[in-house]
Amino acid sequence: MLEVAGLGEVEERAYRLLVRAGEADVADLAEELGLTTEAAAGALAAMRSAGLAREVGDGGRRFAPVAPEVALGPRLVRQQETIDWARQAVEQLTEEYRGSLRRRNADRLIEVLPGRAALRERLRHLQDTAREEVMYFCRAGHVVMPSQDNTESLEALQRGVAYRVIYERALLEEPGMVANVAYGIGLGEQARAVLTLPVRMMIVDRAVAVLPLVQHTHGTTEPTAALVRGSSLLEALIALFEAQWERATPIRFREDGRLADAAACPLDEDELYLLSLLVAGVPEKTIASQLGLSLRTVQRRVYHLMELAGAQTRMQLAWHAARERWL
């Protein structure tokens, strides 16, 4: 049990006997442990050298144990430090091994999915096993399945997986899409729209992405897709999604359930006036004074404008307002 502290089997038995007895000589150890006199003497000599036992009495033939916390404590601390250093070295070597493996076996980073059946099955599996977030580029015209048939996304939303989806405007004009998007938003999906998307793509948990290798298929041509795992390429695809997300317009619905015109300004006259003051650089405190409102009310209305624009900062709000021609 105490091998980790550097004790052999005989030394450990002898030390435990000394701890129980308080003190003993060579003959006592030999008799109690069933050892020869030579073996008992060797064990005592080893314990003395290791600082586990000390001589007592005038004759120097009897021995007592050194307190365990004094004899073994420092050894265990040093042993633990050695283990910690070894663990760090193993982690570093593991990281180097994985990096080398990725360089030498690039085929493990990209898997080709030939045909609709293989692609559909992989899309189903990835969404069924998603834990945190799915990011989607949805282009007009389906390749594998219509958006309405993607029931896995609805099931993932219901179990708490976050979905951020960017739709092409043309896709929203396809029959049944508005109701489908509205239902997803009702379950928690964050949806935005852009005029065009560069590629179809799905990224799951920032760990794997799926996208077609050939964008356009005609007739009976089978689509071929790539499954991309953790790599610089995957990081680039994530950055592409985030860049598109920033420039996309949040999808809103009117009270009657119809999709709001993405090109129309959603602001009323008061909101437009407030926005014009913000864009002009007027401080919120001055705006509050001019409008006869409290500063808190102005800040709340500004926050509402940022939510409408999908902006995180005042600068993003101004940029979005200019791009959408709200002013």
Score class of each variant (00 low, 15 high):
1 M>I: 06
1 M>H: 11
1 M>C: 01
4 V>S: 15
7 L>C: 14
10 V>A: 06
12 E>Q: 15
19 V>F: 07
25 D>E: 03
33 L>G: 06
36 T>N: 07
38 E>R: 15
39 A>V: 14
42 G>H: 09
49 S>T: 12
52 L>H: 08
53 A>N: 00
54 R>Y: 09
55 E>C: 00
57 G>Y: 05
60 G>L: 09
67 A>S: 15
70 V>N: 07
71 A>I: 14
71 A>V: 14
81 E>T: 11
93 L>T: 13
107 D>W: 15
108 R>C: 00
109 L>P: 06
112 V>K: 13
118 A>W: 07
124 R>C: 07
126 L>G: 02
136 Y>G: 00
150 N>C: 03
160 G>L: 11
161 V>S: 01
165 V>L: 05
173 E>N: 10
175 P>M: 05
184 G>L: 03
194 V>S: 10
198 P>Y: 07
202 M>K: 04
203 I>C: 03
204 V>E: 03
206 R>T: 00
214 V>Q: 13
229 R>W: 10
234 L>I: 02
234 L>V: 04
250 P>Q: 01
250 P>N: 02
254 R>N: 15
259 L>H: 10
261 D>F: 14
262 A>H: 09
263 A>V: 11
265 C>M: 06
269 E>C: 03
282 V>K: 11
284 E>W: 02
286 T>E: 15
291 L>T: 10
293 L>A: 13
294 S>I: 08
294 S>F: 04
295 L>R: 13
298 V>T: 04
301 R>L: 00
302 V>I: 13
310 G>I: 11
311 A>Y: 10
314 R>H: 15
317 L>S: 10
321 A>P: 08
322 A>P: 00
322 A>Q: 14
327 L>C: 09
327 L>N: 01
327 L>F: 12
